[in-house]
């Protein structure tokens, strides 16, 4: 038996590390969601589907910009030295995922604006100049391809970054897994597919998104399985960390909210949808989105509780 006592009593650190509250999981979720939406936008641009009359490509970039800005606000709220926020952009720290993220986000904005120009939302139609510019860009296949590719690439980078931000921290064994990036990317893509599915009006797009989401959910399940297997076959600290989900304090929330209600149940519903057994409703996508949020919260909170 080991009796360990410390006299340290620092706020956010003791008795257990809790440096990040709701802001960071929300930010990570939003980052993943936007990443997914960018990939979808890029796909629509690259496949020409954006030209469809009711294509969701018309609203996705704007929604992405708004959602991302909300996420950035959450990130900003988390900062303890807010007036120095600009310091992020006076340097590039190659070893820091957060620095990468800051710069990626800086590139994401113009990419989204460019995508928005191709099929501007109706409110932007009020300005003649924009309509004209938009028509010229949309007509140029090369520009569309470039912008589409840019959105896909930046979306994937953003999605992976949200996971790497955490997985780079060797001090928190639960985060310290190479699978966290792919997991967050997949979850982001899946969440985005579900979310876009909810707002898509074009039936073919909806079907496509549900099918894609089902695939992503299956992949996500596999990654979660591999994540836990990897964790339990690593160091003692990692085994203890995995224990948080395998009998430990986060077990029920993880299996009920992330795996059960967030992946398996909506997957079943969506499989039925694809076979036209049930109608498309918002229930399944909402569950997927909620599961994505739950995943971020649980990983961020449980990760802080895990210790070398």
């Amino acid at each position: 038996m080991l009796e360990l006592t410390t006299t340290r009593h620092n706020h956010l650190i003791d008795p257990g590390v809790h440096v990040w509250g709701w802001e960071i999981p929300i930010y990570l979720f939003v980052g993943g969601l936007v990443a997914g939406m960018m990939v979808i936008t890029g796909y629509l641009l690259l496949t020409g589907r954006f030209r469809g009359r009711e294509s969701v490509a018309r609203s996705l970039p704007l929604i992405s910009l708004i959602v991302l800005s909300a996420g950035m606000l959450a990130l900003f709220l988390d900062l303890e030295h807010k007036l120095y926020f600009w310091r992020l952009y006076t340097t590039f720290e190659i070893t820091s995922p957060m620095s990468w993220g800051a710069w990626i986000l800086l590139l994401v904005y113009p990419a989204l604006v460019a995508a928005m120009l191709i099929r501007p939302p109706s409110i932007l139609g009020l300005w003649d100049g924009i309509v004209k510019l938009s028509g010229r860009v949309a007509a140029d296949d090369r520009s569309v391809r470039w912008i589409g590719t840019l959105n896909v690439v930046l979306g994937v980078m953003l999605g992976i970054y949200t996971g790497i931000l955490l997985s780079a921290m060797g001090s928190r064994p639960l985060w310290n897994s190479a699978l966290l990036g792919p997991l967050f990317l997949t979850s982001g893509l899946s969440g985005a597919a579900a979310f876009v599915h909810m707002i898509a009006r074009d039936r073919s797009e909806s079907d496509l998104l549900v099918r894609a989401d089902n695939g992503l959910l299956v992949v996500e399940l596999v990654i979660i399985g591999l994540f836990l297997i990897g964790m339990t076959s690593a160091s003692e600290a990692h085994i203890r960390a995995a224990g948080l989900f395998l009998g430990g304090s986060y077990t029920s929330v993880f299996w009920v909210f992330v795996v059960g209600a967030g992946i398996i149940f909506p997957l079943v519903l969506q499989l039925l949808m694809v076979r036209h057994k049930i109608r498309h409703t918002v229930v399944a996508p909402l569950l997927v989105v909620a599961g994505g949020i739950a995943l971020r919260f649980i990983i961020v909170y449980a990760g802080q509780a895990s210790h070398m």
Partner: peptide
Amino acid sequence: MTAVSRRRFLKISTGATVGA
């Protein structure tokens, strides 16, 4: 390595950071 990059930054951007 990071220290180097920071120092370089300080050297390069002195002018730019004064106001801030």
